[in-house]
Nucleic acid binder design. Structure first.
Length: 591
DNA sequence: ACGATTCGCGCG
DNA sequence: AAAGCGCGCGAATCGT
């Protein structure tokens, strides 16, 4: 059963019920926001799939009211997939002219104030000034898809899937993508446990006492002094790459840029303080006191996750740099008293995905029950684990030179099917064709400029430069499609993994628990205050925050979910998806 | 003065 | 030329 949810012109919420095929639809009911909350609460027991234009617009207000839903269908995210998928290329949906569902983001509406409401409810009114950090800037202007649009869109999507050659793949992808959207909203709401006191101590130990935003801390000031002395330039600003490069050249330091890796290659008294300056300057700028003040609220880090934010299907984040959380500061991620963090990451995920995609049983065997790179060494393909890793990455990213390039022929001999798949994907991209992931997400087509450059190279009057540029550009796009098919399929595995984890954690919850919103609350968010829940996701890694007594059960759930995800994508193909799982108090312990 | 672009570096 | 993919972010710098 589907329940279609949309906004009416007068600001109410329209709901109607559909059968699984979309064939029969109940009359639409118009509800106030308060009535809508009650409606969802009452109907969730029927386990419907809630259909709405954009999970990020609807779900936060439900979470704020202590309501979670088990299943969703995000029309916007699913539309993007179906619009571009090779599998649905002949559908009405894909052939129609671009419309509201193709705009970059579903436009904002009066409902967006719920973001501030959410913040007030969850964290207390005194924080409302910073409330906008959740889900703001989702776009302005334009028309919001209404009741009729949403219904027509759902029917169009169901039709596109039903009429394609392998509907099972896309059905799974759309369900996983939609589950991801629910998880993203829940993780943003719950937040990652963050100890500001530990973080602040770390900053002071590294940088010196706290200073105002824009002021250089004492440790950085001291290093700047040493750099100026070493380069004999009393007015040098080490934050200016241009100044720095000029000063380095004056001092006869042979570097083409100020990048750290390049500085490490040369010997000069300035190198040590300069590298230290860069490291600490990065810490201050990216995760310093200002970051802490902006992003840590009520002992939680609440990044905005953006499902489908990357063309390959990976998630992106907006604000806070959640997907770049440096190892340096992970010690501040600490479980609440009586709670644990269960940290799990998929070992060598992309090579395993490649082995399964290409049905390369030899490569899959190399990873059976053990580290896949070690398995490649055991099979005598290369000598060391480091070589196996660099060779595999080279195969998936399209390396042609260096150690990686030199090792590729050995990899190709041992794993011809896997390497043939990446090569075929690269050739498709070079021709301007698209490639498609395991579940049916297709790569974008290159833009007009790209095609024009290629066409130009075929002109009899084309210069050698034209041809070189066209060839180079074609290879660039080939490396993109080569990687797309692996990275995108790995993202699908990760979505399925997470969706299975969420489902199993849900079943752990005790149904009789009543959750109450208390505006003086400072601990975990209301919908998650007693039970294990996902708090972080990083491409191939998840963190579950759990009462200590459930940690063993959570570990089992995460491990079984990995096996289930592998089966969902690859059926009986014998490939293992191994995890490293750790139950810890602090994220820093899990590395 | 201010938005767009580039550099450099963090993560997978 | 960090040899090879995908991102976000802050500061400096460029362009208007």
């Amino acid at each position: 059963m589907y329940i279609l949810v949309s906004r009416t012109v007068d600001g109410n919420v329209a709901v109607s019920t559909l059968t699984d095929t979309g064939a029969a639809r109940s009359p639409s009911r118009s509800l106030s926001t308060a009535e809508f909350l009650g409606f969802v609460r009452d109907h969730e027991a029927l386990m419907p799939r809630w259909v709405w234009d954009d999970t990020a617009r609807w779900y936060p207000q439900l979470l704020a009211a202590g309501i979670r839903v088990q299943r969703g269908h995000d029309l916007r995210l699913c539309h993007v997939i179906l619009r571009n998928s090779e599998l649905t290329a002949t559908s009405q949906l894909a052939r129609a002219a671009p419309g509201v569902w193709d705009s970059a983001s579903v436009p904002d509406s009066p409902a967006a104030v719920s973001n501030d409401t959410l913040f007030d409810l969850a964290f207390g009114a005194e924080t409302s000034a910073s409330g906008g950090i959740i889900a703001q800037d989702r776009g302005v202007g334009g028309t919001q898809p209404g009741d009729v649009d949403a219904y027509a869109e759902l029917i169009s999507q169901l039709d596109a899937v039903a009429s394609c050659a392998e509907p099972g793949r896309l059905r799974l992808l759309l369900a996983a993508e939609s589950a991801g959207a629910l998880i993203a909203a829940e993780m943003q709401f719950a937040g990652l446990p963050w100890r500001s006191d530990i973080h602040a101590n770390l900053l002071t130990a590294e940088l010196g006492p706290r200073v105002a935003h824009g002021v250089r801390p004492v440790r950085l000031e001291e290093l700047a002094r040493q750099i100026r002395a070493a380069l004999d330039d009393a007015s040098l600003n080490p934050d200016s790459q241009q100044d720095l490069l000029r000063a380095l050249r004056r001092a006869d330091v042979a570097v083409a840029s100020t990048r750290a890796w390049e500085l490490k290659k040369v010997t000069h008294p300035v190198v040590e303080p300069l590298l230290e300056y860069k490291k600490l300057s990065r810490l201050l700028g990216a995760n310093g006191w200002h970051w802490m003040d902006t992003w840590i609220v009520g002992g939680r880090f609440h990044p905005e996750y953006v499902p489908g934010g990357v063309v390959t299907g990976r998630w992106a984040t907006r604000g806070g740099g959640a997907l770049q959380l440096p190892k340096q500061v992970r010690g501040a991620v600490v479980a609440d008293d009586g709670w644990k963090l269960v940290v799990a990451d998929a070992a060598q995920l992309e090579p395993r995905i490649l082995a399964a995609l290409s049905a390369d049983t030899a490569m899959a065997a190399a990873g059976r029950g053990k580290d896949l790179y070690e398995g490649i060494v055991t099979s005598k393909v290369v000598e060391t684990r480091a070589q196996a890793k660099v060779a595999m990455l080279g195969a998936m990213y399209g390396a042609t030179t260096g150690e990686s390039g030199r090792l590729l022929p050995r990899l190709a001999r041992a794993y011809p099917r896997a390497l043939a798949l990446t090569e075929t994907a690269a050739r498709s991209g070079e021709r301007g064709d698209i490639v498609t992931t395991r579940l049916g997400r297709s790569s974008p087509r290159p833009d007009e400029n790209w095609r024009a450059t290629q066409a130009q190279a075929y002109d009899p009057a084309a210069s050698a430069t034209d041809e070189r540029r066209a060839r180079s550009q074609a290879r660039d796009w080939g490396r993109f499609t080569r990687n797309f098919i692996v990275q995108g399929s790995a993202a699908e595995w990760a979505l399925c993994w997470m969706a299975e984890i969420r489902k199993a954690l849900w079943d752990l919850e005790r149904p009789d628990e009543k959750r109450v919103i208390d505006d003086t609350m400072t601990g975990p968010a209301p919908a998650f205050d007693h039970s294990p829940h996902l708090v972080f996701f990083l491409h191939d890694e998840v963190i579950v925050h759990t009462p200590a007594e459930f940690a063993g059960e959570v570990t089992r759930i995460i491990t079984e979910a990995a096996t289930t995800a592998g089966r969902l994508l690859f059926g009986d193909f014998p490939v293992d998806f191994l995890l490293t799982v750790a139950t810890v108090d602090s994220y820093a312990e899990a590395q």
